[in-house]
Design a protein around this nucleic acid. Structure first.
Length: 825
RNA sequence: GCCGAGGUGGCGGAAUUGGUAGACGCGUAGGUCUCAAAAACCUAUGAAGGCAACUUCGUGAGGGUUCGAUUCCCUCUCUCGGCACCA
């Protein structure tokens, strides 16, 4: 039969229009808890460059699962929206003068069009954009709820400042001392800013991870970020005035080895220790404090190699042995770790060792090691070592295991003596949400003429983002340039009142969007309790691994807060979460415009069709892996689809070829199982195997090889993968017309798997002799369980006999249906 | 330095979680069709040896457990992510 190329463009456009006219899969949020499935894709920032192949990957993967679930009779909700506030649109506005609202709208329209072309079956009825007043009104409402509970508060202190973005950043947005977005070196500034008190939930955020079905690596990451550490706070006394200086340590067993104490510059000032210093030291100390204050992030990093500090001339008493040791100031001690005062144990800590060497401080070994070389190196003050050993020079604890009884006994004793207590520290700090940028949600706060903050009244929400604004960065919030904003505030609150000019971190917007999805047009509340109760939690969240600490932590925090406020009944928003990998350029590198290795999905759709693009991206490899693009492999997928199209044109028969029927049911089984665990690459491979066999049999036969029913089974299991082609073929075969109402493949029931039909009649059993496969036995299915017979068959097989000649069998193993293993000597 | 993921043909990747390594796709070679090409289809395709049936080797390296290891254990090595002066 003559092979034709089916017209993918025509078919795809026609069905896209039909589905849209029918409002297929729209308005799926109904309060029906039966069989509910809330499937969530991390909503995207609508960038001006449009959809890229990475977007296609995650959207398509979930769409396949969604279509499959629907056919399985699940009540599926699959919403869509836009993380529409953000810097790129604002930066573009600075360059071109085009208002961010304009560019955002255009970008969303482009994305929407592209997504529809891909055949993603989103429910558009609850589409949201975080920049829409009816959305950010509730972001502001949430801020106010936090404010009323004192979980949103204002504080001044050192903050991370990006000189290029002209805004402060959250700790989470500083990567290696650089701005996450533009890689500028981050500076420290003292500013009064708004914070969310996420630390109130730190223990729950940590413990809640336990039962989540998330990738273990992601959970581990969040644990590290929260950074809970149990240690001992030990009180040292200042000799000069008996003032207590508390150090915090995880290595208290080395306390007898303390030969100095180091304090962070900021802490030294906070405790006002300067006044105790002798005049001869005063100048050096003041100089050091001044210099430390002005160190840039870059200089500090250089300092990693060369530690600096200054002796205060003050003496600290080690409580365990009464020894007086010097107090030094050094900026390698960080203000926000522990108590910002560190006990210096140079024999057993690398940093302390370095510091001691540089400033000629004493070194006392208090742990001896089994390894003689190590031990003598430490003894000779050539290096430090932090491994396990036996305590020495440690009074009553000498001879005890430094990681076992010794560690325990030292702690017990210190606590008993009232010298120390357990203290748990965390790395997680409160979330700084103020941003000195325009394109974001305005913080709903106004200041009275005395400068005291007050919440914007709820009836004034949404607290609209003004439009008469000069975007050009001047180191302060662009909103200050809006006359309307100030006039509005004075009109509503009184003369001399001023609005808060900062906007919120866009991560605030995205921390609760999955809640708004459930009731996006509700003007009375952020979502009705009924719908929240019905649909939460999210059943599967597919999100890039780049959101591990930021978004996922914040969203969990919001969920827990709203639960405590009585709005939600769940503790965790996303019980099951998976990551999609990155699609790399053909060169195996991350796609970027500057590298010129970007693949445009529109071009692929035009050339090969949306179905081919969808299937290719899923066929590339495991969803979670990073995979390089291969242009030629897309053509292979297009070929696969074309073969299906041509085979489906052939006549059907009244009895399916038995081997093909078997293959079809094996395929049904494999595809069903793989879809449930998102192993889409192997599901597609199985579909290909099935088609290969179908084609082979069809070639060898003059008449049809498939019944109409079996053909329809194949089309149905193809439907989640290739929604357009399967819809077309289904319509062709069943002859349904629009007049009968929509009866297309996407509302059909997923076929039932028949184990009997999938079973092979003959099973191939391999025979190993001394671990090497030497023969294959074709065994009737009924005989597989007959061990005696199978072993007999194996031993009398001529191939096997050859290898058994002159040998005695000493062991026989039969794994039913798989393998016979004979051991002979 | 620490934490995490990983290393399988020329390439992307499979492998029922201890049971025939290399499914499926790409690429390559030869062929069919064609005046020719493209497209499409067929056959072969881990490496080495052999005319051949066949044999040996082979999942980053080395060792171990086992009748049997890509899979489990130990040591090492390389790659990719992340964190990092965290006391």
């Amino acid at each position: 039969m003559k092979k034709i190329h089916y017209d993918h463009a025509e078919i795809e456009q026609r069905w896209q229009k039909t589905w849209e006219d029918l409002d297929l899969f729209q308005n799926q949020v109904i309060a029906n808890p039966q069989n509910k499935q809330y499937l969530l894709f991390a909503f995207a920032y609508p960038s001006g460059s449009g959809l890229h192949v990475g977007h296609v990957e995650s959207k398509t993967a979930l769409d396949m699962l969604v279509r499959f679930s629907r056919m399985q009779g699940k009540n599926v909700y699959f919403p869509v929206g836009w993380d529409a506030f953000g810097l790129p649109a604002e930066n573009y506005a600075i360059q071109t003068g085009v208002h961010p609202a304009e560019t955002t709208k255009t970008a969303i329209n482009t994305f929407r069009k592209q997504i529809k072309r891909l055949g993603i079956s989103y429910d558009w009825a609850n589409e949201i954009a975080t920049s829409h007043p009816e959305y950010y009104r509730w972001t502001q409402w949430l801020f106010l709820q936090l404010y009323h509970k004192s979980l949103a508060y204002q504080d001044s202190g050192a903050v991370n400042w990006c000189p290029s973005c002209q805004t402060v950043l959250a700790n989470e947005q500083v990567v290696e001392g650089q701005c996450e977005r533009c890689d500028s070196l981050v500076e420290q500034k003292n500013l009064k800013q708004w914070y969310f008190k996420i630390t109130d939930y730190r223990d729950e955020l940590l413990n809640g991870l336990e039962n989540l079905d998330w990738p273990e690596a992601t959970k581990q990451h969040q644990r590290h970020w929260i950074g809970k550490a149990k240690g001992l706070s030990i009180d040292f006394k200042l000799k000069e005035n008996n003032q207590t200086l508390t150090v915090w340590t995880k290595f208290w067993e080395t306390v007898y080895g303390v030969t100095f104490v180091v304090i962070a510059p900021e802490k030294f000032e906070e405790l006002e220790l300067g006044k105790l210093i002798d005049s001869d030291k005063k100048k050096a100390v003041e100089e050091y404090l001044d210099q430390a204050k002005h160190k840039t992030e870059e200089e500090r990093r250089i300092g990693e190699k060369d530690k600096s500090g200054v002796d205060t001339g003050l003496t600290v008493i080690n409580p365990v042995n009464g020894q007086g040791v010097p107090l030094l100031i050094a900026d390698y001690v960080l203000m926000d770790v522990g108590t910002a005062i560190v006990m210096g144990v140079p024999a057993h800590d690398e940093r302390d060792f370095e510091f001691a060497k540089k400033y000629n401080l004493n070194i006392t070994q208090v742990i001896s090691y089994e390894d003689k070389e190590f031990d003598s190196q430490v003894k000779n003050q050539e290096r430090s070592f932090a491994g396990r050993g036996v305590l020495i020079n440690s009074g009553r604890f000498d001879g005890q295991d430094s990681w076992g009884e010794g560690k325990q006994n030292v702690a017990d004793w210190l606590i008993e003596q009232g010298l120390a207590r357990w203290e748990t520290t965390y790395k997680l700090r409160d979330w700084l949400i103020s941003r000195q940028r325009y394109w974001g949600t305005p913080i709903p706060i106004v200041y009275d003429p005395e400068g005291q903050p007050h919440p914007v009244k709820e009836e004034h929400l949404p607290w609209i983002l003004p439009t008469d604004v000069d975007f050009n960065p001047k180191g302060e919030s662009p909103l200050k340039s809006s006359r309307e904003f100030i006039e509005r505030t004075e009109r509503l609150y009184g003369k001399g009142w001023r609005p808060e000019f900062d906007t919120m971190d866009t991560f605030v917007d995205s921390s609760w969007y999955f809640l708004r999805y459930l009731d996006a047009r509700n003007s009375q509340e952020f979502a009705s309790k009924d719908k929240l109760k019905t649909w939460l939690p999210v059943d599967l969240y597919l999100i890039g691994p780049e959101h591990i600490v930021l978004h996922l932590l914040y969203a969990r925090f919001f969920t827990k807060f709203l639960r405590d406020e009585g709005y939600l009944e769940i503790d965790e928003p996303f019980n099951k979460m998976r990551h999609q990998g990155m699609i790399l350029g053909p060169d195996g590198k991350k796609m970027s415009k500057s590298k010129g290795n970007v693949i445009n999905p529109d071009e692929i759709i035009q050339k090969f069709g949306a179905d081919a693009l969808r299937i290719y991206e899923m066929f590339m490899g495991p969803l979670e892996a990073d995979k390089p693009w291969d242009d030629r492999a897309v053509a292979g997928v297009a070929r696969f689809l074309n073969r299906i199209y041509n085979l489906a044109q052939e006549e059907t028969t009244n009895k399916t070829e038995p081997t093909l029927e078997r293959k079809l049911h094996q395929t049904l089984k494999k595809v069903t199982e793989d879809l449930l665990v998102l192993k889409l690459n192997t599901a597609i491979a199985m579909l290909m195997e099935c088609v290969n066999q179908w084609e082979k049999l069809s070639r060898e036969s003059n008449i049809g090889v498939l019944t109409k029913e079996d053909l329809l089974i194949f089309i149905k299991i193809l439907a989640p993968f290739a929604p357009f082609l399967s819809e077309e073929l289904y319509a062709q075969i069943t002859g349904t017309t629009e007049s009968t109402g929509y009866q297309g493949v996407h509302v059909q029931v997923w076929p039932e798997f028949d184990a009997k039909l999938a079973q092979e009649e003959q099973v191939m059993i391999a025979v190993q002799v001394n671990g090497k496969v030497r023969a294959q036995l074709a065994v009737e299915r009924q005989q597989v369980g007959d061990q005696v017979k199978i072993l007999d068959l194996a031993k009398t097989n001529p191939e096997v006999e050859k290898w058994l000649a002159d040998k005695i069998i000493i062991k026989e193993i039969y794994v039913p249906g798989r393998i016979v293993s004979l051991v002979a000597d």
